[in-house]
Write a protein that binds this DNA or RNA. Structure first.
Length: 593
RNA sequence: GCGCCCGUAGCUCAGUGGAUAGAGCAACCGCCUCCUAAGCGGUAGGUCGCAGGUUCGACUCCUGCUGGGCGCGCCA
């Protein structure tokens, strides 16, 4: 419709130009937008305002000339000038009502588009180190990334959702060593657990699994384990050195046994993460292993690419990438003096891998604390000769969890935190998914657990679901009374929908494709949540003001069509956000909170 | 110190150059003989952090200031 109006104006401008009324160097791109206020019609253009300057004339006069040259259209009922010189377009009722037929035909495909042209893109999100269960801090990235993936698919991208698994490096060694030490404790060895080890209870659980599988096979004497280990921090030493020494000993003493523990720890935590995310309705196409980059030659090739473009240099024994050349604040080490590659080297290799897999766009969803990564990833992209516009890095601001009015700490050093699993089991998947994405990802979020749990009118997700359930209920009642919903009768009688609430609801429905498209192009998942709330609001108002099941068969079917169309959009929108659309919600099912 | 993000109603937030700045919650007043009251209608609530600038037009863009969050290792 926007394109149609654009065309009308464009033609009018060309006529005016040809008649010599206007003297423009070129026809500008014409901006058409939905009006916010229905008193301003359905669509408005500011074209006369923008032309005021080049034409050196007043906007209202220009608008008048444009209107006089507008060709008549079967979709437009009225055009008027308003305010400083806006041109407002009113659609014909027939045109407005078409959307119902369209939705009933397309069903849940309404709002889908070919915007993405089937381009291969990837969205990487969460990617938390597999050193422990996911906590509520990861939940926002998971909810956002998953919803974004759904939305991008909806507009026609071939989206590959990916989790980058940091299954390589020192943190994993600390994990494996922590498990081993807990295992030794279970065997009865007197162990002083290192300050820098992972202290969560889940480590003990894994150690127990190791013990039940291997018995005492991996047991070694405390004296051997701690032989030549420098003192821990409480004993006046360095906690970093202490844990590193323990890792060296663990690898030495255990040999192949170390890999067994390592693998057990990784598998156990990773499958826990996978399960937690599945329960959170978050699905991945790929769990990408960092180790696979080390096993293959991707890192070498990535480094070679950087070297080729002469962006690598040696300093103080280490190998550096000159990121400052591309605007980063400092150069970055890719290989340490001890010959080990840094995480950044893996990141560059992963980047190369994404380009090699032919993704047109790689979207990274990072926590706000990772904002320092943007310049260096962009720098590496450019240095390898790729288009930096092909990577988009989104920062998710922190969510603060509130419980009983008090802020709940997200993580603590001691390994105590609210896990995602706990959140989902306490609040439920639907409400927690919705709460995480109902605010802009660029905004700090206060997550009120009590509100999310409350199954009441305070809770926006239930409000939306309730609208859906009400429609389902209308349909059920109909069947109980042996009345038929005849869609064709409804289509023919569509002009009977004249109530204000009906027209408002119809208008909102017709906006769904635009909302989805805008959410996709600007990565603004929360706009879908806002839209659904508005749509539910309009439906509830309508429901209260007018009866759907009326005696008049024509009107009844027209209204049923409208309800059904609303239902499709509500269900699809909820699906995009990872929430369900229940067909029945009973007040007596509510849990008192 | 440097860099990134944020400041809109009592609270939590929408509003990515347009018309009279909007929702929800909290407050107050109403609505079930009628398809689910997890609902609806109404009232009240604002110096869009402050000061300049760009523009026909600024909550929106630019600069400075101010308040808050986060980040600045051969850590992961």
């Amino acid at each position: 419709m926007i394109g149609h109006i654009q065309e009308l104006i464009e033609n009018a401008l060309e006529h005016l130009q040809a008649k010599g009324e206007f003297d423009l160097e070129n026809i500008p791109t014409i901006n058409i937008e939905r009006t916010r206020d229905k008193k301003h019609g359905d669509y408005a253009s500011n074209v006369a305002l923008t032309l005021a300057k080049p034409l050196k004339s007043n906007p209202r006069a220009i608008a008048e000339k444009i209107i006089s040259e507008l060709a008549s259209s079967s979709h437009v009922s009225r055009v008027e000038i308003a305010g400083p010189g806006f041109i407002n377009f009113y659609l014909t009722n027939a045109c407005r009502l078409q959307v119902i037929k369209r939705i009933l035909k397309l069903k849940e495909d309404f709002g889908s588009s070919k915007l993405g042209e089937d381009q291969k893109i990837t969205v990487e999100f969460v990617s938390a180190n597999p050193t422990g269960p996911l906590h509520v801090g990861h939940g926002r990235g998971a909810a956002f990334g998953s919803s974004l993936t759904n939305i991008l698919k909806k507009v026609g991208y071939d989206v590959h959702a990916e989790y980058y698994v940091n299954d390589h490096g020192r943190q994993m060694d600390i994990l494996a060593t922590s498990v081993w030490l807990r295992y030794l404790e279970l065997c009865g060895e007197p162990i002083t657990f290192p300050t820098n080890g992972y202290k969560g209870d889940y480590i003990v659980d894994i150690a127990r699994c190791v013990r039940s599988k291997y018995g005492d096979d991996l047991r070694h004497a405390q004296s051997e384990v701690f032989a030549q280990v420098s003192p821990d921090e409480p004993a006046g030493g360095s906690k970093e050195q202490h844990i590193d020494d323990l890792i060296v000993n663990a690898k030495d003493i255990l040999g192949k046994g170390y890999q067994k523990i390592f693998k057990k720890a990784l598998d156990s935590i990773l499958s826990g993460i996978e399960n937690d995310l599945e329960d959170f309705n978050v699905h991945y196409d790929e769990w990408f292993s960092e180790k696979s980059l080390h096993k293959g030659d991707t890192i070498e090739r990535a480094m070679a690419k950087l070297a080729e473009s002469e962006h690598l240099y040696k300093k103080e024994g280490a190998l550096w990438f000159n990121a400052t050349h591309f605007g980063d604040e400092k150069d970055r080490v890719v290989m340490r003096e001890n010959g080990l590659k840094t995480y950044f080297a893996s990141d560059v290799a992963y980047l190369l891998n994404k380009f090699e897999r032919g993704f047109e766009k790689s979207i990274y969803v990072f926590g706000a604390d990772h904002h320092g990564y943007i310049p260096r990833l962009k720098a590496a992209t450019k240095a390898m000769g790729f288009d930096a516009d092909k990577i988009d890095i989104l920062l998710i601001q922190f969510a603060h969890l509130f419980k009983s009015g008090k802020k709940v700490p997200m993580t603590t050093r001691g390994g105590q935190f609210v896990t995602l699993k706990e959140l989902v089991s306490e609040v439920g998947c639907d409400a927690s998914r919705f709460f995480y994405v109902m605010r802009s990802h660029e905004q700090h979020l206060d997550f009120d657990m009590d509100l999310a749990k409350s199954q009441s009118n305070d809770n926006p997700v239930y409000y939306i679901q309730y609208a859906h359930a009400r429609i389902c209920s209308i349909m059920r009642k109909l069947t109980e009374q042996n009345m038929m919903h005849n869609v064709e009768i409804g289509h023919v009688a569509v002009e009977l929908l004249v109530e204000e609430q009906e027209l408002d609801l119809i208008k909102a429905l017709s906006q769904y494709p635009e909302v989805i498209e805008k959410a996709a192009t600007s990565y603004a998942v929360h706009t879908v949540a806002n839209y659904l709330r508005e749509l539910a609001q309009l439906f509830h108002s309508y429901y209260n003001a007018h009866q759907v099941q009326v005696d008049n068969e024509n009107l009844r079917n027209a209204r049923l069509n409208l309800c059904l169309a609303t239902r499709y959009v509500l269900a699809d929108g909820l699906r995009l956000l990872g929430s369900s659309a229940p067909e029945e919600m009973r007040p007596e099912d509510r849990k008192e909170t």
